Amino acid sequence: MPTNIEIKARVKNLELLLEKARSISGSQGTRLEQEDVFFNSPNGRLKLRIENEGASGKLIYYTRNDISGPKQSDYTYTIVQNPKDLKETLRLALGVRGIVKKVRQLFMVGQTRVHVDSVEGLGNFMELEVCMRKGQEMSEGTAIAEELMKDLGISDSDLVVCAYMDLLDAKNNKN
Rank of each mutant, 00 (worst) to 15 (best):
C162D: 15
G44E: 08
R31K: 14
K71L: 08
G26Q: 09
V160H: 08
C162F: 00
V130E: 10
E33M: 03
F39P: 06
L18G: 02
D166N: 14
Y77A: 06
S27N: 09
G110N: 13
N65I: 02
E129Y: 06
D156Q: 13
A21G: 11
N173C: 06
T30S: 12
V80K: 01
K174I: 10
M1P: 10
E88L: 11
S139V: 04
A145D: 06
T142Y: 08
S73F: 07
E140G: 00
P83Y: 00
A163H: 12
Q81H: 10
L48Q: 02
G153Y: 02
A145K: 04
A55C: 01
L128N: 09
L92Y: 12
N52I: 00
A170M: 14
T3P: 02
N40T: 00
R31P: 02
T112C: 14
M132F: 04
K174S: 15
D74G: 02
N172G: 04
E120C: 01
G98L: 05
D66K: 14
S118C: 04
A21I: 04
L16F: 01
D156T: 06
M132G: 06
I24R: 14
D85I: 07
V100C: 09
I99R: 11
G95R: 01
I60L: 15
G95I: 00
V161R: 15
N124E: 14
R49P: 06
Q34L: 12
I67G: 06
T142K: 15
V116T: 04
E88R: 13
V100Q: 06
L86I: 02
D36P: 04
T30F: 06
V116N: 07
C131R: 13
E127V: 02
N65L: 13
I5W: 05
M149P: 09
K84H: 10
L168W: 05
N172I: 01
D156N: 13
M132P: 07
I60F: 03
S23A: 15
V114W: 03
L32S: 05
A163L: 03
D85E: 15
A21W: 01
N172P: 01
A170C: 09
K47S: 03
K87I: 00
K8C: 11
L32G: 00
R133W: 04
Q34I: 02
K171E: 14
K174G: 09
I5Y: 07
F107Q: 09
K12Y: 02
V160D: 12
E140A: 11
H115W: 03
L18I: 15
V100N: 07
E51F: 00
G54N: 05
L17Q: 07
D74W: 00
A9W: 07
P2H: 10
K134C: 07
G29Y: 03
S23Q: 13
Y62E: 08
Y61H: 14
T3Y: 12
T112E: 11
I99D: 05
